[in-house]
Amino acid sequence: MPVLIFIDTAEGHVKKSSLEALTYGAKVAEQLGTTAEGVVLGSVTDDLAALGKYGVKKIHHVAAEALSHFDAQVFAKVLAQVAEASSAKVIVFSNNLSGKAIAPRLSVRLKAGLVSGAVALPDTSNGFVVRKNVFSGKAFANIAVNTDVKIIALSPNAYQIIAGEGTAEVVAFNVTVDAPKIKVTAVTKASGEVPLTEAEIVVSAGRGMKGPEHWGIVEDLAKVLHAATACSRPVADAHWRPHNEHVGQTGFAIAPNLYIAIGISGAIQHLAGVNRSKVIVVINKDPEAPFFKAADYGIVGDAFDVVPKMTEAIKKIKGTA
């Protein structure tokens, strides 16, 4: 009765958020005195056996061609079959964009209670209780899963990846796969940039930048930090930056290790999207900006002066100056 972890891939590579799920799932298995197994759908170029170093003993691989494009309905049906064949009692996803689509479908299919957006290991001292964030990061809830089979979707960036030693046994899992009803006709990827929801560091800027033509200093800072760029809602609404950079209540909720906010006042709607960041740095010339109350570090100063200096100082410590 293993813990089964869904390993999400893109263009043949295992996503970072899935490595978090693997490490987490292996720890849950250890807690429950059982083994961890992974499941991969579709063809991959990464060496699956090497994923053993994250603590999985076995990987079920369903390589069917029909799984090369994502269709949550098709994926959930295949996963249900793998889960049933392996008698998994706990199934772990990353609560990334794929996990958010598949885990609820699998929950219905297996009639297994789901905790989406888990931020800690389950407490098994009295039942099976998992902590998750609620109220857009302003509170947490402890959720008891009352079904025999349990599904946990782990919040990205909430659990640290630990790589050890070991190889996993890769086993082909043969199953008839339905033809997807959804046809993927185009994929556009921002190449070379760090995906916002997976980024460990995010550099974000707001109206204080005064116009889209001034974003060069924000991008330079992001580049030296290997960070993703983000923006506040007014900036996205004014089309200074694309909508997919908007973080906040109605944009994306993110939880990076470091969030650097430049020229953003920190309205409560913005904070709701970023308050789970581990360290928050605020650069704003207004000492009364509410964001300073939610920040760990701050500089009251002019972004056009401070940000280039920061980029230079980081280059120095990274030895790239």
Binding site: A10, K181, I182, V184, T188, V194
Partner: peptide, 12 residues
């Protein structure tokens, strides 16, 4: 939305 990009889907 997909991680780091967008995907266009067609469905009946």
């Amino acid at each position: 939305e997909i991680e780091g990009g967008e995907e266009v889907n067609e469905v009946e």
